[in-house]
Design a protein around this nucleic acid. Sequence first.
DNA 1: GGTGTATATTCAAACGTTTGAATAACGTTG
DNA 2: CAACGTTATTCAAACGTTTGAATATACACC
Lengths: 359, 359
Amino acid sequence: MSQQKSGHVTLLDIARTSGFSVSTVSIVLRETPLSLKVAPKTRKHIREIAKKLGYHPDAYAQSLRRRSTQTIGILAFDLSDPFCIPVLRGIHQRLDQTGYLPLTMDAQARRDLFDNYLHLTLQRRAEAVIVIASWVFEETNLLGDVRKNNVPIVILGRDLTARGINSVLVDNEAGGALAMRHLRELGHTRIAVIRGPQQMCDSEPRWQGIQRVAREQGITIAPQLVFELPALADPASGFEGGLHITRQMLASGRPFTAVLAFDDLTALGVVRGLTAAGIRVPQDCSVMGFDDILPSEVATPSISTIRQPLKEMGIEVAEWALNGIARGSATGATRPDEPRLHMPAPELVVRMSTGPAAA
Amino acid sequence: MSQQKSGHVTLLDIARTSGFSVSTVSIVLRETPLSLKVAPKTRKHIREIAKKLGYHPDAYAQSLRRRSTQTIGILAFDLSDPFCIPVLRGIHQRLDQTGYLPLTMDAQARRDLFDNYLHLTLQRRAEAVIVIASWVFEETNLLGDVRKNNVPIVILGRDLTARGINSVLVDNEAGGALAMRHLRELGHTRIAVIRGPQQMCDSEPRWQGIQRVAREQGITIAPQLVFELPALADPASGFEGGLHITRQMLASGRPFTAVLAFDDLTALGVVRGLTAAGIRVPQDCSVMGFDDILPSEVATPSISTIRQPLKEMGIEVAEWALNGIARGSATGATRPDEPRLHMPAPELVVRMSTGPAAA
DNA sequence: GGTGTATATTCAAACGTTTGAATAACGTTG
DNA sequence: CAACGTTATTCAAACGTTTGAATATACACC
């Protein structure tokens, strides 16, 4: 049998077994133009041996030689956030057609891991970096090393165009507006709002959208019915937050017929709180979420929500990364274009948790 | 400025900038024993230049030279299956201490992608492969090439010891028994069971556990109240299945006070079906799930379920992978030990969806 | 002044590939 | 038969890194 040193089958193993040189073997297996000039019999022979030995070209050696790793680093801020998976799906879909391999890393909402993985990404010579950061994302010295090694970078979930980074994120203002308009059309006027945590960049624009529609529709949102989630790193904490705030709302005694929650998990917490108090959803009170994650769909009542086109956003961001790579190699240096911003419109998903305002 | 060819900062760049040789720079940056003999002034100087230039060692060149990639391939059958994330977390946790980088790939429940990624894993010279395959996982020619390249392989979610592969999976028999015993202790005797799809390896042992406890407790499960989910690739299809089967159950008119569902999504489908028919959970009918995924926790009523120690299983499987690597390098060839099987006990999680049997 | 030792730095080979240039073998042609 | 074209295969350098062996310098010792 072949006498490999590394335990892996190499071109040399095939060369020795077949009696041809390493070059010939490479040419045949890579199907270089030159391989057309190799006798068909030889080609067949070499390919058979490669298959029999279970040969797989060494991506490391190939990359070193070709000076391209065919890799794109994907840095997810927290994979357990249901937000991430559809985005990844979109990225994969776009990348699968290209031969680029996504190198996915999960920072688990930890700043130290995030920085760590960023270094790893550079070490692994990813040709571009995609950052998925829906949740808290303290500024890091991203720009420094990534720029120095002129690796194109794109971010999904935050607007960092101010830092010169191409960004894709949902149009949160439009989303807030969509949610508010839906409740208004159902006849609700006394609407409680649970805003997102201050630190989260999504919070403010959603609130702006809500207020805009309120103004347009000539209704006022009582300040006593506006609440704010506490800042917590754990994305699942929204549920507890929603539950807790609902208890407060009910205790205050102030009447309302609908709750507009910051996200789906918060909305699910609200449903729990209302149900515990004997208030039926949606007959007695409507509840509105944001994000459209799996639990909203399978809960009973299912949650009406605002859907982000996550998959499409993933495709878009992958496209940008590929563009960045293409541009980089074409000009030799990424010229500092005006950074681009893409804010796709979200979509209203009407389910069971919203209904006409009670008389 | 440095005149790199590849766009990346290399040792050569640092050497030229600092006036020392590539070797010296490498020795200093790698902090080899030899580096103790390099003048402190020189060391400092070199390190500063490296930092200033934003140098990151090229993992590809390193791996080639060191003949070790410090990479473990993780092949998830479907990342959107909530089952996967906690497992990944466990794997990460164990691996983070070791310097090994998990190379995670999502086969999206597609056979072709799975095979594809397996090849990629070998090309990328992963030193071990972890397969996470909770859902359908048709036999592939895994064994062939992976074995030929003597890469240790471990699987989580199926028992493949018969094929000589170390396997970790929850004790499904015990889980089924746990669920059944819980319902029995609440006084239920007329229990409907929704079995998993035939093709899924978890289905049979769970069913065995259920039957064992039924026998022990001297109750019989009416064959008319035993249903089976259809085989579908989409892990989220359990919800539809549960809903559909519930409608059948109700239509049949046969009385029952509890439903033991194959998994959580199925249970959520059952709740939807029952609620739609005006049957209250758990007052009129209890519902039991299996898996403990996020939706079960945040739905109202939350779902009583059987929790798999997914994170611990991830840690275990990572441990085995590391062992496999250590052993391989020690002996030069993996000797065909008796493959190991680890079946951790699951845990009962009592929530809101189960209660005393109605009189 | 030759030999030895400690200190500081560099040489050069190797890892597995790819690929432009070189070579060999074999007609064909002038 | 020498010069040339094809055709089929191999040489050798390079990618960026690591590292055992080699070298160079200084400094003492007998």
